[in-house]
């Protein structure tokens, strides 16, 4: 199957839209087709937000995802709302401190993205990119080179260095269980 559907969800303010944008851009750098869409509430912070990325070697017709191959959940409420259409053989990536109630029969990767961002980088802001680091190493959906390039193109100039650091912190991470 050449089409991979990825959903990154969490709360408004956690940078899920940016994360999806980086992933989609990286796929395009690798010569694939990508479409990223998003959904969020009227509140700028705190409501459920999701960013969906479809990556395919073919032209992408329908831009929304219907059965999710890979889902990243940065909050428990987002996981609860969006987990229903993740494929049985799909994989789940969760922020291990913020998502504790997990579905019983699914491959789950726990990443302490928010904690690492706060402890290592002094702010929870970069948890999204820490998560992308872990996601990239485990899924091999896109290359880390393409992701690094996409990060440079997607984040504000003054946060480039710290975002690259966040990506590396996630990329070298051993999973916690």
């Amino acid at each position: 199957m050449s089409r991979t559907e990825v959903r990154i969800c969490g709360l408004g303010g956690q940078g899920v839209v940016l994360a999806g944008q980086i992933l989609g851009r990286a796929a395009v750098y690798m010569g694939k087709n990508a479409v990223q869409t998003q959904s969020y509430g009227a509140e700028a912070r705190g409501s459920a937000a999701k960013s969906e990325v479809i990556i395919s070697s073919d032209r992408i017709l329908f831009p929304k995802i219907r059965s999710c191959d890979l889902m990243v959940a940065m909050s428990q409420s987002a996981l609860d709302v969006y987990v229903h259409d993740v494929k049985e053989e799909g994989q789940l990536f969760v922020d291990s401190d913020l998502v504790t109630k997990l579905p019983p029969s699914m491959e789950v990767h726990k990443v302490a993205a928010t904690r690492i961002s706060r402890c290592e980088l002094g702010s929870a802001t970069f948890a999204n990119v820490v998560m992308l680091g872990a996601f990239t190493r485990i899924t091999r959906l896109v290359s880390s080179d393409a992701m690094e390039k996409a990060i440079s193109e997607s984040v504000a100039a003054k946060t480039k260095t710290v975002n690259h650091k966040a990506f590396q912190l996630g990329f070298v991470l051993r999973e916690s269980h």
């Binding site: 944008q21 989609g24 990508a34 831009p63």
Partner: peptide, 9 residues
């Protein structure tokens, strides 16, 4: 909204 907020090539 969909077409405006969508990102693609």
């Amino acid at each position: 909204e969909v077409t405006s907020h969508m990102r693609e090539q």
